[in-house]
Simulated scan of single mutants.
Amino acid sequence: MATILITGGHSGIGLESSRRLAAQGFTIVLAGRSPERMRSVATELRAAHGVEVHTVELDTSSLASVRAAAASCRAMVERGDVEPLRSVICNAGGRFDGDERYTPDGYELTFGTNCLGHFLLVELLLPAMAADGRVVYTASGTHDPDTTDGKMVGAAVEPNAIALANDGKDGAKPLSAGKRYSTSKLCTVMYSYELARRLDRAGSAITSIAFDPGATPGTGFLRDMPKAVRWFSNTSLMTRVSKRIGVVTSTVEFSGASLAELAVDARYATASGGYFQAREGKLSKTRSSTVSYDEQRALTLWNDTKELVGLLPEEEPAQLR
């Protein structure tokens, strides 16, 4: 059966997506940094749906971990243990509040986790993908400073990979946690669009899609926030207030189902370069931020990111050069 790789597929909307895909009979590769939790989910999916489930340890904040995970996945495909990847779902990520922190590679943790790791993973896995495969990036409406989501979290700043990777170093004032998060999601949307343009120029049938799951209570997204904030974020009152002020809201169940749909449904086979949003029970294509469509900024972001992750010339798929 066709194979789906999903990062962060053992919790939140990723788990719901994994369940939906397993129910359709797909072989699942769970990639994440919690082997114990992934094993538990794998056992659940096998028992419930009789599907094949593999687990690969992956920490997107570590480029060494990304390389090891990609090598493991490619080896599975080359050995014939699984079919070529029908979809790669780049879903893992987070917001990191408190003092600035850095990855094992010395990069700011939010940008390293949400952006650099997935960028390198996709580059290394493209040769293991089916000819008509899909890459789906979990983004966020917070990337757009003109929306309520973006204004509440903190308006995204310039998508400068070098500056974002080194945020807060050498005594410079760091960005707020909200700005770091929203800007990382702006970069995610721009990676998705730039990938779509490169694949299109190469005549590839692989599709690249960006997805906004909306604000989804109960995912653990605010785990670094004070206990009172976490509690209130999961109340029905918070949901009502969010809707009233214009925040894009959804549920774990609907957003997880939407993520799965974008990854495999035939209706999205020609949706490359699109931005889709889950909002109050409806999945629809919509416009992303104005900056996200700036092709020169995206090109610079792409090339700078290649340097940051240390991508070797021979590692870059021919159609993306």
Rank of each mutant, 00 (worst) to 15 (best):
G214L: 05
R230S: 06
Y193R: 15
L199W: 11
P217L: 00
T235H: 12
E194D: 08
F232M: 12
R230C: 06
G220A: 13
T251L: 08
S204M: 10
G246S: 12
T249F: 04
F254A: 04
I209E: 09
T219V: 08
S204V: 08
F211G: 05
T216G: 06
G218V: 11
A202D: 11
A202W: 08
D212T: 02
L195E: 09
L195T: 09
T216E: 09
M238T: 14
T249Q: 10
R240S: 14
V248T: 15
S258Y: 02
L195V: 07
G218P: 00
M238H: 11
L262E: 09
V241Q: 05
V248W: 00
T219G: 08
S208N: 13
A205F: 01
V247Q: 08
R201I: 01
R240L: 12
V252D: 08
S208M: 11
T251Q: 09
G220P: 08
R230P: 03
A260W: 00
S258C: 15
L262V: 13
V241P: 03
A202H: 14
T216K: 04
R201D: 11
T239A: 13
A196Q: 10
I245K: 12
V252Y: 01
G246T: 11
S255Y: 05
S208R: 13
I206N: 01
E194V: 01
K227C: 00
S255C: 04
I206Q: 04
S255R: 05
I245M: 15
R244I: 06
F211R: 12
A257N: 09
T239E: 11
R240N: 10
L237D: 06
A196N: 02
M238V: 06
S242K: 05
R201A: 15
M238A: 15
T207D: 06
V248F: 00
S236H: 10
V229F: 09
G220H: 00
A257P: 00
R230E: 13
V247P: 01
A215L: 12
A202N: 11
V229I: 09
R240Q: 14
T216Q: 05
A196C: 02
I245G: 10
D200W: 02
D224C: 06
L262P: 06
R197Q: 03
G203P: 07
P213S: 14
S242Q: 11
R223H: 10
P213C: 06
S208G: 12
L259M: 07
V248H: 07
T216W: 01
W231K: 13
S236E: 15
N234M: 04
M225P: 03
S208W: 07
K227Q: 02
L259S: 07
T219N: 02
A228F: 14
E194P: 00
G203C: 06
R223V: 10
L262W: 05
F221Q: 07
Y193G: 07
S258Q: 05
A215Y: 15
L195K: 10
N234A: 11
L259I: 05
A257Q: 14
S236M: 12
G256Y: 02
A210G: 02
T219H: 01
S258W: 01
V252Q: 13
R198V: 04
N234F: 11
V241F: 13
S258G: 01
G246V: 00
D224E: 14
